[in-house]
Design a protein around this nucleic acid. Structure first.
Lengths: 214, 214
DNA sequence: GTCTATAATTCGATAGAC
DNA sequence: GTCTATCGAATTATAGAC
């Protein structure tokens, strides 16, 4: 009499869409593949999300929301101790949550990493839809980085921050492969990976590119 | 009487395919869009390339060949002066040719940057097809880097090299956008960009991640 | 909310004339 | 080498019964 076994249709669609968008991209993923693997009806997708593009937006939002929240919470926490925080502390707050969430659940983790990596090379409007979900967090982090390194121009900090994000995404998407930086999935492994990544990025971020010679 | 004006069909197809694969990805690009914009017949694509996948391979190969040749030539040149070369010299030989080619012609340059960036997130077998074209060069550079930094493990150098490539591709794809590292397209601008990128990456590559504390 | 059925396009690939 | 014509299959989206 209970309507039980049936996992929530909406969530099931999101799970499958997340994986397929990650593996095959937006254009490479058909709604028929989604509904086939999700075991739902095609009309259900349009009923719950309206269109393929809105389904994509829902997938992005579900991934980004907890990541952004965790990033801002970590940043506020280290700002309470030191303001402005060190470059290392800022990067640790930025890098840890995505890597944690990517590796939190064995099933969806790698898909989410691939998904975020793929978002940055998708054609418009997909790329913009994805970027918007993280923009608020990135703006706060860039502002904080600016106060920690007031002598560097906004432009210089912008491209350095952008390359830090690029490194983060690359580490996440390559996780587990041979010679990759991130291998295990325990908190210990994540902490070690973040530490190595922070120490790889920090000296280049600290160095003022206008005050040096070749 | 001369068959003149008609630009070479094969090359015209490659030009359009390069741009569309870059903007929309492999799955997002239809052969019909290619032939429409190229002003050729659909059958011409299958006649000259055999299939959509083989067309993609031809596009990758055309981009990679001159880049790889220039990278190896530059590396050999600085090895003639110093062997093993400094990390800075190795990176300069690695980074300069792609950025030069990306900005060499105003039209196709940015497309090629986007194309290379997109190749790294395409589903298989597309991603592998693209990687193979650069693998020979990357192997030589990684070996040289290993001789320059013999104290670091192969694994550590591998992920550092991979992040350097990620930074290169990100800089290329973002070229010209606000706050991007690479703005102009003159040799002077390219040299300055390479210099800044080298100095951003070098200290992190030189630091041994196993000999430091958090 | 979930389903079937189908509309309206578009796709990659090929056959065969010229 | 280039063309037209077309096959067979796949796509997003919607209409309407239940």
């Amino acid at each position: 009499m209970n309507p039980p076994i049936q996992t929530d249709t909406k969530e099931q669609i999101l799970n499958v869409a997340e994986r397929l968008f990650a593996n095959q991209g937006f254009a490479g993923t058909s709604l028929r593949c989604v509904i086939r693997e999700a075991g739902v009806n095609l009309a259900a997708v349009h009923y719950h999300f309206g269109s393929k593009e809105e389904l994509f937006r829902a997938v992005v939002s579900r991934i980004a929301k907890p990541v952004v929240a965790a990033q801002l919470e970590r940043l506020a926490h280290c700002q309470a101790q030191n303001d402005p925080p060190s470059v290392e502390a800022i990067l640790e707050a930025l890098l840890t949550p995505p890597l944690q969430i990517v590796l939190s659940c064995k099933e969806h983790g790698m898909n989410r990493a691939q998904f975020m990596g793929r978002c940055r090379t998708e054609p418009e409007p997909i790329q913009t839809i994805a970027r918007q979900e993280f923009q608020a967090s990135h703006q706060v982090f860039l502002d904080t980085l600016q106060r920690s390194l007031p002598d560097q121009s906004r432009t210089e900090l912008s491209w350095k921050f952008d390359l830090a994000i690029a490194a983060l995404i690359r580490v996440a998407t390559e996780a587990g492969k041979p010679n990759a930086l991130l291998q295990g999935d325990s908190p210990k492994h994540i902490h070690l990976t973040v530490s190595r990544l922070v120490h790889f990025l920090t000296p280049g971020i600290r160095a003022d590119s206008t005050h040096r010679r070749i």
